[in-house]
Design a protein around this nucleic acid. Structure first.
Length: 478
RNA sequence: GCCCCCUUAGCUCAGUCGGUUAGAGCGACGGACUGUUAAUCCGCAGGUCCCAGGUUCAAGUCCUGGAGGGGGCGCCA
């Protein structure tokens, strides 16, 4: 048997040579043509088989989804539609696939909703193959972007005793027997008996740990799983997701915005450069899906147009105060079309307001800055007006907030004041506050929701479709 | 957590005002077919109408409750 070659490589391999290809059958046409996919790329390899030579028994086992190995000679294709094809000399069924029960036939049209319920098999479809190859490219691109800029990849802890970050509800981590929980005399749980001898949770953010590293190594980023026990039921929330959190010493808010914009543009370009075939497929998928929608609900731009548009235009940088003025004077606000009317400075922006700014007013990504201190986290740097903080939210069309970040409050006294105001227990945070005690310097960072980026780049609309095994309230299948 | 919608064949969906034996396309299965491209053509089978109650002479259709799914909002990345 000749050496095995992947489908992606065979398209550029020398013809008139013998190769072995292993993959899964997509279709079998005319008792002669087997489309084989091995996941290395979107395209299938056309295998030309002689059913007389194969015999009836083998022919019957070539069904959609079957695992198969083919050895033969690669030739310039005798038909249209592909450059090369493999003339089968030897075919072996590696794994049979019962067509009566196999739920994915290429000619079928299973919905995304249905595929979500068979998440273990949806990898076999063109769409999810494309999505997860793009997801990989983006993950790799993130490491490359930061590595090329001299950042250090920092692993922040997944289990943490800190629950003072205020970033959301946390999942508890415990080895205590829940049927017989050890109690203190006052009836509270005795965590001294627990594995870590204290109350621990899954992390909701690696930021505070990243700050410690940045204030020594200069430029760091984390990229790891993040857990929020919020009861969020939306197309943009997961209970378990991946987050990228760069943190840079000596950066101010403007540097932070530059880094965020550079990074997003780099990653979009990286996907365009390395996933052209998959993105073209996803673009077509989106067009097909939107054919059934009324004109008004269709996207103004195709997927590739949208991605290129983001690359070509600078993100709009607007302060919260300016945004409120725009919203106050906007048509939908004056006509009472907002569910939450915009009337006074200080209120948090609702997603309908963010969508208006991004999708209607500016029609491009927007970075909102300098929010009122009362609606932002304790660690954000106070401006001289004593009223706003150096926060930034990057808003993308269709996604909403893709990045949230800020310049950090490096002044110990101001930080302590803010913690007191917001009831953050400073005594539990001494490890964090020590950075402000010993050689504190200005610094800034942000968090990028990885799945929200994948959503945007793939043109998908539900975040559960861009992570292999989605976890959300009421569901931790597979 | 709140609001709205959906659940009929393996998949995607029709099913009129509550009225006879439940409909289509695709898939699967049987057959034909050696240059097909989601192949095509012929044939055939396939139903707990999500579940449990209720109203009615009669329920896929109406009512109540439950389960599962989807979308919107809130929280956020």
């Amino acid at each position: 048997m000749s050496k095995r070659i992947k489908v992606i490589d065979i398209f550029t391999a020398s013809v008139d040579q013998n190769y072995t290809v292993m993959g899964w059958v997509r279709t079998f046409r005319n008792n002669q043509f087997i489309s084989v996919n091995d996941g290395s790329c979107l395209a299938n390899l056309q295998v030309v088989a002689d059913s007389d030579k194969m015999g009836e028994d083998l022919t019957k086992r070539i069904t959609s989804g079957a695992g198969i190995s083919i050895s033969g000679k690669l030739i310039v294709s005798q038909g249209k539609g592909q450059s090369v094809e493999l003339i089968a000399e030897q075919i072996e069924i590696l794994g049979d696939c019962d067509p009566e029960t196999y739920p994915i036939q290429l000619k079928n049209r299973p919905s995304l909703e249905y595929l979500r319920e068979i998440a273990h098999l949806r990898f076999r479809t063109n769409a999810f193959g494309a999505i997860f190859r793009v997801r990989h490219a983006l993950a790799y691109g993130i490491h490359k972007f930061f590595n090329d800029r001299g950042f250090f990849y920092m692993h922040s802890p997944i289990i943490t005793a800190s629950d003072a970050e205020g970033a959301g509800e946390m999942f508890q981590v415990t080895t205590l027997n829940l049927k017989d929980v050890p109690k203190n005399e006052d009836g509270s749980v005795n965590f001294k008996e627990d594995f870590f001898e204290k109350h621990t949770n899954l992390t909701v953010s690696g930021q505070l740990e990243a700050e410690l590293a940045a204030l020594a190594l200069g430029q760091v980023y984390t990229f790891g799983p993040t857990f929020r026990a919020e009861n969020s039921n939306t197309t943009r929330h997961l209970a378990e997701f991946w987050m990228i959190e760069p943190e840079v010493a000596f950066n101010d808010l403007d540097d932070n915005m530059d880094l965020a914009e550079d990074m997003l543009k780099y990653l979009i370009q990286y996907a365009l450069d390395h996933c052209a075939e998959d993105l073209a497929f996803l673009e077509q998928r989106l067009l097909d899906e939107e054919k059934n929608k009324p004109q008004a609900e269709r996207s103004e731009m195709s997927l590739l147009q949208k991605l290129n548009f983001c690359l070509e235009h600078p993100f709009e940088r607007v302060s919260y105060t300016e945004a409120i003025e725009i919203l106050k004077n906007s048509k939908p606000n004056k006509r009472g079309q907002f569910q939450y009317p915009v009337d006074k400075w200080g209120a948090d922006l609702q997603s309908e307001h963010e969508r208006y700014l991004v999708e209607k007013h500016f029609k491009k990504p927007v970075i909102l800055t300098n929010y009122p201190k009362d609606i932002k986290a304790f660690y954000m740097r106070m401006n001289d007006d004593n009223n706003t903080v150096r926060a930034m939210d990057v808003l993308f069309p269709g996604i909403g907030e893709i990045i949230g970040g800020s310049q950090r409050e490096e002044r110990m006294e101001v930080l302590l004041n803010r913690m007191q105001e917001m009831h953050i227990p400073a005594d539990e945070m001494s490890w964090f506050l020590d950075t402000r005690k010993y050689g504190s310097v200005p610094h800034a960072g942000f968090g990028l929701g990885f799945e929200r980026l994948v959503l945007f780049v793939t043109g998908m609309t539900n975040i559960r479709d861009v992570i292999p095994f989605p976890r959300f309230p009421g569901s931790a299948e597979f």
